[in-house]
Amino acid sequence: MKKMRFSIYRYNPETDAKPYMQDYEVEIGPKDIKLLDVLTKLKAMDDTLSFRRSCREGICGSDGMNINGKNGLACLTDVASLSEPVALRPLPGLPIVRDLIVDMTQFFKQYHSIKPYVVNNTPAPERERLQSPEDRKELDGLYECILCACCSTSCPSFWWNPDKFVGPAGLLAAYRFIADTRDEITSERLDNLEDPYRLFRCHTIMNCVDVCPKHLNPTRAIGKIKDLMVKRAV
């Protein structure tokens, strides 16, 4: 059995004056394929090691973390692909609750700020509102977001202004509702983003695109929002 070395960010506010990196060595068996498999094994060895996880198949968005310097989901990361010692840190830029667990309040606050729901004040028909397959296709690449925060916490603009810049995840969601033919408040949504910070702090650094575990493209969505703003200005 092969042994692998890990260096993991540890911080328990009750006992630690400051954070430190703890080294672990762990045997990698044939069933330890994903990083989350190894973390689960480490947890059985040292139950104080704290991290979030749930579905273990990349759809719930719980186990985002910084893996060898790049944000990703532990459950989708192949252990074999990682160089040693594997450095695991919490998602950058958010307050740390404990170990790999961050306080995501600010992230969700920004998501909530874009009114993440379809607004349609026309009385609903008896049956479904119709939408053509082409119009529905506009939502592909947008609605699949799992709110793992890998993108926003890899974005320097979000690090500097997490309270003012909506961030890639929130802006991707904003465009998801703008693009939905059933939504009636596009102009209000654009007003909500027309601000030096909320939208325009995106400097197309594209870290978000690079790290998204669902292969979504927030930068493109942000570009489309900017296009709509230009269009309505002329």
Partner: peptide, 20 residues
């Protein structure tokens, strides 16, 4: 129940005639 979800904004796939 399903029509209600659609009205809530659930992104169902669509048929050519626009239905779910």
């Amino acid at each position: 129940a399903v029509v209600e979800l659609e009205h809530f904004g659930m992104p169902f796939d669509r048929l050519e005639n626009g239905k779910i």
